[in-house]
Design a protein around this nucleic acid. Structure first.
Lengths: 118, 118
DNA sequence: GACTGACATCACCATAGGCTGATACGTTAC
DNA sequence: GTAACGTATCAGCCTATGGTGATGTCAGTC
């Protein structure tokens, strides 16, 4: 079984729905957002903490957090006037599984020397 | 052990070197490039094949292939006047491992309810 | 009820990045 | 050698996206 990216391939839809994956990857492809994700993997934080940790401006962080939220990578939990952000493990496990499947397919292809002739 | 993304964290450098990862993720964050990667996971192809499969223009594909190459995701093997592109499994296994580590860290954080107080 | 703090949204600018046509380069075929 | 083909590179356009300051909104605090 392969990535959920393309329409062909062998059967069962992988972990995430197809259109999601591009969005998730684009969300993770930014260094600051990746930093945020890494920080959130250890503890839930609110924007104030992230401002301290990253040195980025509040507005900027708010934008990035919105992107992470819309990609389904983080959950928000309002707590008084604070908003806690927590990483959603499912989003990452799906990606990890997809990449692992791709990697094993690629290894098989490389070892068997599958090559379309011109 | 956590992502190779940030400088802190617990010890061993993960699979890929840090600056690489952003580039790899950016390379994968494009739908067409992801499609290419998916196609290459099953068999090595040259640009002509990819033009047929994706319907994209040759120039466009050449650009995307360059990005994938510079990200270390694909290898090129000249074959006469053709150039075969093959997916490099290592790049994917590294990513898969990193995401799996992140996911398990996130799951632990979620279950234990780690949360920095404001 | 007025104020402060946490956070989101908006409008704007600057840059990056994707797509394209034109073109250059190397290889095979004649 | 010349022509045809596969591929890479270049310059230009256009859209997407990240960063910023100003502003709005809501929840506590006095």
């Amino acid at each position: 079984m392969v990535m959920s990216v393309d329409s062909d391939a062998s059967g069962a839809p992988a972990t995430g729905t197809a259109p999601d994956q591009a969005r998730v990857l684009r969300a993770l492809a930014d260094p600051l957002r990746m930093r945020i994700v890494s920080l959130l993997s250890r503890e839930a934080l609110c924007t104030t903490h992230l401002v301290e940790e990253t040195g980025a401006k509040q507005t900027n962080l708010s934008n990035h957090l919105k992107i992470l939220r819309e990609a389904g990578l983080v959950d928000t939990e309002p707590c008084g006037r604070f908003t806690y952000y927590a990483l959603r493990p499912e989003a990452l496990t799906g990606l990890a599984a997809d990449f692992a499947a791709l990697a094993s397919a690629a290894r098989l292809t490389a070892e068997a020397g599958f090559k379309r002739s011109c």
